[in-house]
């Protein structure tokens, strides 16, 4: 599937730094329509920074961010969200002190009422309907992740970005969630998945980018990422 759709997310020559610490060096990433891209790499490789820049939570020191062909470098995160970029950050992406219903309501906007969001969310994850009045913080890890996915998807995004969704979750729950992600991609949504646990996500990804030290080390077909490349990126084996 890779390389067929038009580019949805393009990061061009991105460099970024926290205060004086530079964390990304000239990173180029393109996610096309309907494609699932796995963004892999060890800790400190700069994966989460890529996501922050793509979702406009952080500004690059150099380079530009394009969404569906429009240059949106420097736009506000809320603006991108309204344009159909859905980001689920590391750590579940829910508001723990809001109920399930209120969490869903956060996605409401002009032309998208709460009831529509609930309808769509509960159709995808029926378990959430049972828990609609519960505080999101009291849900299980898997349900919390479902909630954030459900909320994001109810907005009909063009681009879905997921950061370390599997962290702290049982493998079976992770498998379930990634099945949903695959289904979403089949509906034509582009997906960028950040995972430390490479094997988990390579099974569903079309393309992959491997990063380390803020550089892109590999970019191409997901099938071409082999254990040796990964081991050397992660553990420094030769």
């Amino acid at each position: 599937m890779s390389g067929i759709g038009e580019p949805i997310l393009e990061l061009k020559n991105i460099s970024a730094s926290y205060d004086a610490i530079s964390v990304l060096h000239d990173v180029n990433i393109t996610v096309r329509r309907g494609e699932v891209m796995a963004l892999l790499g060890p800790n400190g490789a700069g994966k989460s920074t890529v996501l922050k820049i793509a979702s406009a939570l952080m500004r690059p020191t150099q380079g530009s961010v394009h969404i569906a062909g429009h240059d949106l470098t420097g736009a506000a995160a809320s603006e991108l969200a309204r344009l159909g970029v859905c980001t689920i950050p590391e750590g579940r992406g829910i508001f723990p002190n809001l109920t399930v219903r209120e969490n869903l309501e956060m996605a409401a906007r002009k032309g998208l009422s709460v009831s529509v969001i609930q309808e769509r969310a509960f159709a995808r994850f029926p378990i959430l309907a049972e828990r609609r009045t519960q505080l999101a913080g009291t849900l299980s890890g898997g349900q919390q992740q479902m909630l954030s996915l459900a909320r994001g998807l109810a907005t009909d995004p063009v681009l879905l970005m997921l950061d370390e969704m599997s962290m702290g979750l049982a493998p079976i729950v992770v498998a379930d969630l990634y099945e949903q992600v695959q289904a979403i991609a089949a509906e034509g949504v582009s997906v960028l998945v950040i995972e430390q646990f490479a094997r988990t996500v390579l099974g569903i990804a079309d393309t992959a980018v491997v990063m380390s030290h803020g550089h892109v080390r590999f970019s191409g077909n997901a099938r071409d990422v082999d254990e040796a490349t990964l081991s050397s990126a992660y553990l420094g084996t030769k």
Partner: peptide, 17 residues
């Protein structure tokens, strides 16, 4: 030893799906 320890590799790369 660490570089060739399968449990370390699993910890970093995740379980095979």
């Amino acid at each position: 030893q660490i570089q060739h320890d399968p449990s370390v590799i699993d910890a970093y790369l995740g379980a095979v799906r």
